[in-house]
Design a protein around this nucleic acid. Structure first.
Length: 1309
RNA sequence: GCCGGGGUGGCGAAAUUGGUAGACGCGCAUGCCUUAGGAGCAUGUGGAGCAAUCCAUGGAGGUUCGAUUCCUCUCCCCGGCACCA
C-alpha cells in the first residue's frame, strides 16, 4: 500500500468500494446454499415498498444491521440466508397509475430498479438470485393458492356484515387499517357499510396467536417425547389436555441434584411424568420421584412454573395441549426403596452438581427450567424473542377477556307467547325435534300445540291449512313454528288470517320445486307456490325468523336470496345438529323461539348487583321483539339516530350517556330470578362480546353514569370475596347470607404518616393472627361516621377521632364463617378518619382478649394486608387509584389469589347456568379491496353452483390490463368492467359464471414472502419442504415497530395456517424480532419530503463512502432508538476508518506482542457478543478504543491486524476487504473465519483496586489479578489517601471485592 | 382510564450479578502544523470551589458497607389499547 515513492496512499472510498462490489457480485460469494450439517442463519429485513421517492438515510439502517449480523454469522461458519425483495402491490403505485394513466406494473419496475441501485452502493451481502416481488404472478400464484386452502378449510368466507369503508380510497378496510375511526392511509373518517366481503377467520387463531407470544422455545428434536416411558407424553392418545410434571430434586444435605439417565434411548432428563387422575400435579410429581428414584421422602419446596408443552414438538399432532408443571423438591433424607425392575431397566439415577447439571441437561427446555430454577424465576417463555412492546401491542390488539356468558331469559309482562309447531312432509309431531322442543317450551311456561297434520305422506295445502285453522288456537299471542314443508303450511295459514299473530319461525322451509336444480318433490303439486309476502309481513309484524342449515347449500341460497329477502326476515344460517334440522334436539330452534339475551361479563361475581340490562342498538334481538315493545317509535328513532353517527362520534369518550328503555320487556337474572328492565344505549358496542351487557351500576363507572342519568336503581354491591380461607368451599352460593352494614375505618395518626390497625388474635377460621382495619357493625339509627367513631373508641381506646371523608360507595363483603357454620355478608362502608390527639382510654378486657392495637407505617401496610380486601380498600381509596374503578366497585380480584377469585367466578357462572369462556377484541380480517392493484381473489361465482374456487391448475389468476384504474366507488373493483376477464365458464358445471373482482389487500403477499426466499423458483409448491425445514424459522427479523399489529399479526396467522395444513414445520415464523429506531431529520422531525429534511444516502456515500455511512448508522446509538441524523457527527466514523487505514503503516511481520494480543482479544470478545445482542454502537466503540490503543504501540503484529480487520469487516466490508487483500489475502475476507476469543489472552494481569472509605472513593492502587483479599485489605489500609480518612477512627469492618475494590467502613462515632 | 417502554453532560450515549457514573463519538477550548481556510496531531472538557472537598443519573423516601442498577410512592416523555362490559 505504499507507492513506489514510499508515500502512504490516502484512504479514498470512491476508489475501492465499487471495485470490490463488482468482485463480490461476479464471484457470487454471498450465494446462499443449504449445507446440511452446517448451522444456518436466516436474517430478514422487512422488504420495502418501492415508492417513487427513493431511499433516505433512515431506510438502510435496519438493512445494515442484518448485513452486519449475517456477515458475522457467515464468517463464523453458518450457512447464511440474507435475501431482499419488494412488496409492490398497494395503493401508492395504484394512485400514481391513476394520475398518469399508466399501468402500475411499469412504475413498479422503474422504482424497483432505482431501489436496487441505491441498495447496491451500500455493499449489502444480499443473494439477489433469491429476490422476490409480490406482484410477480409466479409469486402471487401462491398467495392465491393459500387463500383457496383457507377457503377449503372454511377460514375464508363471504360476509355481509357492516364493514369499514373509506370514501376517499373507495375501498373497504380491515379493522387493522382503521386508526381512531379514520383510514390509516388518508385520514378520512371511515363509514360503516354492510357489503359483501371476503373475510379471513383470523379469530379462529386468536388464542394461539396470543399464547404463542409467551410460549417456550420449540425444538427440532422432541424434548418430552420419550417413547420408552409414559412420562408426560403419550403418542397416539388424543388427549387434549393432559397435565405433566417435571421435577428438580435436591440431595438431603449436599448441593447436588438428581438426574435420570435413560438407558435405551441415550437420553438425559430431569424427572418427568404425568399425574394420575385425581392427583394434583404436585402429588403426581412426588409419586413420580418415588417411583423413578426410589427415594421415599421428597418434600415439595416450590413450584417453579408452568410450561405449555405445545411447542415441544411431538411427532404427530397429538397431545399437544398439556402443561408441564415444574417443581423443586428436596429429599428429607436418604431413605430409599429398591427400584422396580421395570424402572431400573429403563434408567439410572445419577447425582449431579450444579455445573454438571447445566452440561447434563442437553435438551434446551430442561436447561431452561434449570436456569429459571437457579435464578429463582418462573419458567420463562422463549419461543419468540421479541420486544416486549410489540408483544404487548399484539396482546392488546387480540384483547382477550376471560369471563362468562350469562343468559337472561325474556319475561314479557303481557302477551306471553304460545306456540304451534307444524311438522313437515312425511313427518309427525312425534318425529325430529318436535317432542323435545314442546317439552322445553312447556318447561318455560308456554302453551304448546303440535298437531298431527293430515295426509302426511301425500299432503295438500288445503287440508293442512284448514286443519290448523280449525284445531289450533291462533291469535295475537301465537308463534307458529314450521319445519320444512310445515313452514310452507305456516305461511299459507298466515295468508288465510285476518288478524295478526305474534310471530313466525320457519325452520329450513321447503323450497319451490320450480327452483332450478331442485330435486323432484312429490308434494309440490299439493301446494301453490305463491306467497303474499306483504300480507305475511303485515300480520306477523315482521317477526319472522328463517333458520337455514348451511349444509344444505341449494336451500340456503334460496332462503337467503329469495325467501328471507322478500319477507324481510331475520335469517339465521347455522350448521344444524343434523342436516335439515332432523336431530331429536336442535338447540338453535329453541334459541330462535325463546329469545335469550346473552350478556358477556368479566365479573360474573357481580351478578347480584345487576339492576338492568343494556343492548347495543344494533342488537338483532330488538327487531325480533319489536312486537312486544310498548314504545316502538321511540326505540326505532333511537336506533336510527345511532346508525347515523360516525364511529368517531360514537367512540368519543366522556360523552353524555343516551339510551331508551324497551318498555314491557323484562329479563330474568338467572342468579336470583329478579326481573330487570332492558335498555338500548350506544355505549354498548355491537361487535364486542355479545352486544349486550348486564349493568351493575354500583360496580362500573359507565353503568353508574347511565343509572344516574335515567334514575335506575343502584344496588349495594355484593362481592364474593373472602378473608377467611383460600378454598372455594367457603362460599356456598345456595345458602342465604346474613347481611349487616359495617363501618370500615382507615385511621391516620394525628401528625405522622402512620395508620391504626388491629391485630385479631387467633381467628379460628384461619388459625392465625390477622391484621385488619378497624371495623364494626352499624347499629340502628347510627350514621356511618358515628358508628365508625364508636367502633374505634371501643376497639382501640382512641376516642378523639374525626371523620374526614367516605372512601367511596359501599362494598359488600361476603364470607363463610366456620365458627357459626354459615354464610355471612356485610356491606362495608369504608371511611377515612384522623386522630385528633393521642389521648386514649382503656379498652375493655373483652376487646383486649380479641385483638391488639398496632400502628403501621404506609409501607408496612402492604405487607400485612397482602391478599386481603382491606388492603385493596386501603390503597385504592387512600391513593385514589387502582383497584376500585367505579363509585362502588369492589375489591379487584387481582388483589387476591388469582386461582381463588377465578374459582369463585366460575362457580357463580355455573350457578347462573352461564358459560365460562374468553372473548377477543380481534375481528376477522376483511380481506377484499375494491381496487385494481392487488392479487385477484381466485374465486368464481357460478349461477348454479355458487362459490367455486379456481382450480389449482388455473392459478395464478393474473391481473388483467384495464383502461381505467379508477376505483368505481360502488363497491366493485375496476376489474368488473373487463367483461372478457369477468365472464367465465364455471369450472364445475361449465355454466355461466363470473369471476370475483375484488382484490387482496397489500398485506397478503407480505404475510408469507419470507418463505419464498427459501425456494424462490419453485413452481410445484409454495416452498420445498426440505428447504423450509432447513431455513426456518427466520432467526433475525429487523423492521419498524409500526408493523406490530398488522403485518406481524397477519404473518403469524398465515404461518400458523400453513403449519396446520402441513406446508411449514414451525409454529412461528420469526424467532427474534428487532425493531429499528427511526432516523429523524436533523431538525428532530420525521424525515420527510414535506419537511425538507431528507438526507439522501447517495450524497453521504459520495462524500464519506459507504463504509462510513454504515459505521455511522450503527454507531449513532442503541439500535432500536429514534435518533436525529447529524451530518456533523459522521466525521468521527470517517476518522475512525482512516485511523484503521493508517494503522497499516505500523504492521510488522513478527510475533504479536502480549499487549497487542490483549487489546485484540478484549475486542474480539466484546464485539462478538455485542453483534449477537445487536449492540452495534458499543461494538464500534470497542473497536475505536482498540485502534486508539494500537496507535500508542510502536508496532502491531500482522496477524493481530488481520484479526482486527475481520471484526471490522461486517461493518465496513469494502475497506476491510481492501486492507485484507493488500496484505496478501487470497480469498475474500468475508469468507474468512471469524476470530476466536481467547479469554486467557484477554485477561488482565494487573487490575486497579478502588479504595473506598464509608462507600466514598478515596483512592486506588494496582494489584496483581486474583490477589488474596488479605493482601488487598492490607494495601488499602496503607494507602495514604485512605489513611487520611481512617486515622483516629475506629474501623467497623472492611469489605473486599476481589479484583475490584476495598471498602473501609468506619463506626458511627 | 388500563397496559408496556423510557428519563444519565452542550449533543448521541456507556456502565456483567449492586462495586471508580459519564467509556466511545460529536461539539467546544488551548497548543502544534499551515500563507490562509480546512484537514491532521497533542492536551483538556459534568457542575460548584483558589483548594481540600462537595454536589450530580427526573423527584421524594427505603434497603445496603456501597444504588444509574433493587423496593415504595411521585412527576414527565414515548408507544399500544380504549364507553372492550
Amino acid at each position: 500500500m505504499k507507492k513506489a515513492s514510499g508515500k502512504p496512499v490516502p484512504y479514498d472510498p470512491a476508489a475501492i468500494e465499487g471495485k470490490w462490489r463488482e468482485k463480490w457480485a461476479s464471484s457470487g460469494i454471498y450465494r446462499s446454499t443449504e449445507a446440511p450439517g452446517k448451522g444456518k442463519f436466516y436474517a430478514l429485513d422487512m422488504f420495502p415498498y418501492p415508492s417513487g421517492e427513493g431511499l433516505h438515510v433512515g431506510h438502510p439502517k435496519g438493512y445494515i444491521a442484518t448485513d452486519v449480523v449475517s456477515r458475522m454469522m457467515r464468517m463464523s461458519g453458518h450457512s447464511v440466508l440474507h435475501p431482499m425483495g419488494f412488496d409492490a402491490f398497494g395503493l401508492p403505485a395504484e394512485n400514481y397509475a391513476i394520475k398518469t394513466k399508466t399501468n402500475p406494473a411499469i412504475a413498479v419496475r422503474k422504482n424497483v430498479a432505482r431501489y436496487k441501485k441505491q441498495l447496491e452502493i451500500l455493499g449489502f451481502d444480499y443473494d439477489w438470485s433469491r429476490e422476490v416481488n409480490t406482484t410477480d404472478p409466479d409469486f402471487y400464484k401462491w398467495t392465491q393458492w393459500t387463500f383457496l386452502e383457507m377457503w377449503k378449510k372454511g377460514l375464508a368466507y363471504e360476509s355481509h356484515e357492516p364493514v369499514n369503508w373509506c370514501p376517499t380510497d373507495k375501498t373497504v378496510l380491515a379493522n387493522e387499517d382503521v386508526e381512531n375511526g379514520r383510514c390509516e392511509r388518508c385520514g378520512t373518517p371511515v363509514e360503516r357499510k354492510p357489503m359483501r366481503q371476503w373475510v379471513l377467520k383470523i379469530t379462529e387463531y386468536a388464542e394461539r396467536l396470543l399464547n404463542d407470544l409467551d410460549a417456550t422455545d420449540s425444538h427440532d428434536e422432541p424434548v418430552f417425547v420419550d417413547q420408552s416411558s409414559d412420562g408426560g407424553y403419550r403418542a397416539g392418545i388424543p388427549i387434549v389436555e393432559r397435565d405433566a410434571i417435571m421435577a428438580i430434586v435436591k440431595h438431603w444435605s449436599e448441593d447436588k441434584y438428581i438426574g435420570l439417565k435413560w438407558k435405551k434411548v441415550d437420553w438425559q432428563t430431569l424427572i418427568t411424568g404425568g399425574p394420575e387422575h385425581g392427583q394434583t400435579p404436585a402429588e403426581g410429581a412426588r409419586q413420580e420421584i418415588i417411583e423413578e428414584t426410589g427415594y421415599i421422602n421428597p418434600r415439595l419446596v416450590r413450584h417453579i412454573g408452568r410450561v405449555h408443552s405445545k411447542f415441544f414438538h411431538a411427532p404427530k399432532q397429538v397431545n399437544r395441549f398439556a402443561h408441564f408443571d415444574c417443581y423443586y423438591f428436596e429429599l428429607e433424607n436418604g431413605e430409599r426403596h429398591q427400584l422396580s425392575a421395570a424402572e431400573s431397566d429403563i434408567h439410572e439415577v445419577v447425582w449431579l452438581t450444579r455445573e454438571e447439571m447445566t452440561k447434563f441437561l442437553s435438551p434446551e427446555a430442561h436447561r431452561h427450567v434449570w436456569k429459571c430454577f437457579l435464578k429463582n424465576q418462573p419458567v420463562a417463555p422463549a419461543l419468540l424473542d421479541w420486544p416486549e412492546s410489540i408483544k404487548e401491542a399484539q396482546r392488546n390488539w387480540i384483547g382477550k377477556s376471560q369471563g362468562a356468558e350469562i343468559d337472561f331469559r325474556l319475561a314479557i309482562r303481557d302477551k306471553k307467547p304460545r306456540f304451534v309447531i307444524l311438522h313437515g312432509y312425511q313427518g309427525s309431531a312425534k318425529t325430529n325435534f318436535i317432542p323435545w322442543l314442546k317439552r322445553e317450551l312447556e318447561k318455560r311456561g308456554h302453551e304448546v300445540e303440535a298437531p298431527e297434520l293430515p295426509h302426511t305422506n301425500d299432503p295438500n295445502e288445503e287440508d293442512q291449512v284448514a286443519y290448523v285453522l280449525n284445531n289450533c288456537r291462533i291469535d295475537d299471542r301465537t308463534v307458529i313454528i314450521g319445519h320444512s314443508l310445515g313452514s310452507i303450511t305456516a305461511l299459507k295459514v298466515v295468508m288465510k288470517l285476518d288478524r295478526p299473530i305474534s310471530g313466525l319461525v320457519l325452520v329450513a322451509p321447503a323450497i319451490d320445486p320450480d327452483f332450478k336444480q331442485a330435486d323432484f318433490r312429490p308434494y309440490w303439486k299439493g301446494y301453490k307456490w305463491n306467497f303474499d309476502y306483504a300480507q305475511i309481513q303485515k300480520l306477523t309484524g315482521g317477526r319472522i325468523a328463517v333458520l337455514s342449515d348451511t349444509e344444505e347449500r341449494l336451500r340456503a341460497r334460496y332462503l337467503r336470496d329469495v325467501l328471507a329477502k322478500n319477507l324481510n326476515a331475520t335469517l339465521t344460517e347455522i350448521k344444524a345438529t343434523e342436516e335439515h334440522f332432523c336431530a331429536l334436539e336442535e338447540p338453535a330452534i329453541l334459541k330462535a323461539v325463546t329469545p335469550l339475551i346473552t350478556v358477556f361479563t368479566t365479573r360474573p361475581d357481580t351478578l347480584y348487583g345487576v339492576t338492568y340490562v343494556v343492548l347495543a342498538p344494533e342488537h338483532p334481538w330488538i327487531s325480533q321483539c319489536m312486537n312486544f315493545i310498548e314504545n316502538k317509535d321511540e326505540v326505532r328513532a333511537y336506533i336510527a339516530k345511532t346508525s347515523r353517527e360516525t364511529e368517531i362520534e360514537r367512540a368519543a369518550a366522556d360523552r353524555e350517556k343516551t339510551g331508551v328503555e324497551l318498555k314491557n320487556i323484562r329479563l330474568i337474572n338467572p342468579i336470583n330470578g329478579e326481573e330487570v328492565p332492558v335498555w338500548i344505549a350506544d355505549y354498548v358496542l355491537p361487535d364486542y362480546g355479545t352486544g349486550a351487557v348486564m349493568a351493575v351500576p354500583a360496580h362500573d363507572d359507565r353503568d353508574f353514569a347511565f343509572a344516574q342519568k335515567f334514575g335506575l336503581p343502584i344496588k349495594p354491591v355484593i362481592a364474593q370475596t373472602f378473608t377467611s380461607t383460600h378454598s372455594s368451599d367457603a362460599f356456598r352460593p345456595a345458602e342465604p347470607a346474613q347481611t349487616r352494614p359495617t363501618a370500615v375505618c382507615i385511621i391516620k395518626h394525628p401528625t405522622e404518616d402512620r395508620y391504626l390497625f388491629v391485630k385479631k388474635k387467633g381467628i379460628s377460621d384461619l388459625g392465625e393472627d390477622v391484621i385488619v382495619a378497624t371495623a364494626g357493625g352499624i347499629d340502628a339509627g347510627e350514621t356511618v361516621p358515628q358508628a365508625g367513631q364508636r367502633e374505634i373508641a371501643e376497639e382501640t381506646g382512641y376516642s378523639h377521632v374525626r371523620f374526614i371523608r367516605s372512601l367511596g360507595a359501599p362494598v359488600c363483603y361476603r364470607y363463610f364463617s366456620k365458627n357459626s357454620n354459615q354464610n355471612r355478608q356485610a356491606i362495608l362502608y369504608p371511611g377515612y378518619y384522623e386522630l385528633i390527639d393521642e389521648s386514649r382510654q382503656d379498652v375493655s378486657e373483652h376487646e383486649k382478649s380479641l385483638h391488639d392495637t398496632i400502628w403501621l407505617e404506609q409501607h408496612d401496610i402492604q405487607r400485612y394486608l397482602d391478599g386481603r380486601p382491606f388492603n385493596a380498600i386501603f390503597w385504592s381509596r387512600l391513593s385514589g387509584s387502582s383497584a376500585y374503578t367505579g363509585p362502588g366497585i369492589l375489591v379487584d380480584s387481582g388483589n387476591f389469589s388469582g386461582q381463588n377469585s377465578t374459582d369463585i367466578m366460575k362457580e357463580i357462572t355455573a350457578a347462573a347456568q352461564g358459560r365460562w369462556l374468553a372473548k377477543y377484541k380481534l375481528r376477522d380480517w376483511v380481506f377484499s379491496r375494491q381496487r385494481y392493484w392487488g392479487e385477484p381473489i381466485p374465486i368464481i361465482h357460478c349461477e348454479n353452483c355458487g362459490v367455486v374456487p379456481v382450480p389449482e391448475k388455473d392459478l395464478p389468476v393474473k391481473l388483467p390490463k384495464v383502461k381505467s384504474y379508477e376505483p368505481t366507488g360502488t363497491g366493485e373493483s375496476p376489474l368488473s368492467a373487463i367483461r372478457s376477464w369477468v365472464n367465465v365458464k364455471c369450472p364445475r358445471c361449465r355454466g355461466r359464471a363470473r369471476r370475483e373482482t375484488n382484490t387482496m389487500p397489500q398485506w397478503a403477499g407480505s404475510s408469507w414472502y419470507y418463505l419464498r426466499y427459501m425456494d424462490p423458483k419453485n413452481s410445484k409448491r409454495l416452498v420445498d419442504a426440505r428447504r423450509e425445514k432447513y431455513w426456518s424459522p427466520v432467526d433475525l427479523y429487523v423492521g419498524g415497530a409500526e408493523h406490530a399489529t398488522r403485518h406481524l399479526i397477519y404473518a403469524r396467522f398465515w404461518h400458523k395456517f400453513l403449519y396446520d395444513i402441513g406446508s411449514v414445520k414451525s409454529v412461528e415464523p420469526f424467532r427474534k424480532l428487532q425493531n429499528v429506531g427511526l432516523i429523524m431529520g436533523e431538525d428532530g422531525r420525521k424525515m420527510s419530503k414535506r419537511f425538507g429534511n431528507v438526507v439522501n444516502p447517495d450524497d453521504i456515500v459520495k462524500t464519506y463512502g459507504a463504509d462510513t455511512l454504515r459505521v455511522y448508522e450503527m454507531f449513532m446509538g442503541p439500535f432500536d432508538q429514534s435518533i436525529p441524523w447529524s451530518t456533523d457527527s459522521i466525521v468521527g466514523c470517517r476518522r475512525f476508518i482512516e485511523r484503521v487505514w493508517k494503522l497499516r503503516t505500523k504492521i510488522v511481520p513478527g510475533a504479536p506482542s502480549d499487549t497487542a494480543a490483549k487489546i485484540l482479544h478484549k475486542t474480539i470478545g466484546k464485539v462478538t457478543e455485542d453483534i449477537q445482542h445487536l449492540h452495534f454502537n458499543t461494538a464500534i466503540s470497542t473497536m475505536m478504543i482498540a485502534v486508539n490503543e494500537f496507535e500508542k504501540l510502536p508496532n502491531v503484529g500482522r496477524t493481530i491486524y488481520e484479526s482486527y480487520l475481520k471484526l471490522l469487516a461486517p461493518f465496513a466490508p469494502h475497506v476491510a476487504e481492501e486492507l485484507w487483500m493488500s496484505l496478501g489475502g487470497k480469498k475474500s475476507i468475508h469468507l474468512s473465519a471469524w476470530p476466536t476469543f481467547d479469554p486467557k489472552l484477554a485477561a488482565d494481569t494487573e487490575v486497579r483496586i478502588i479504595v473506598q472509605v464509608d462507600g466514598r472513593v478515596r483512592g486506588s492502587f494496582m494489584a496483581a489479578a486474583g490477589g488474596p483479599a488479605t493482601e488487598l485489605e492490607r494495601r488499602a489500609r496503607a494507602l495514604p489517601e485512605a489513611a487520611k480518612w481512617t486515622t483516629g477512627k475506629k474501623i467497623a469492618k472492611i469489605i473486599v471485592i476481589p479484583d475490584r475494590l476495598v471498602n473501609i467502613v468506619l463506626t458511627g462515632e
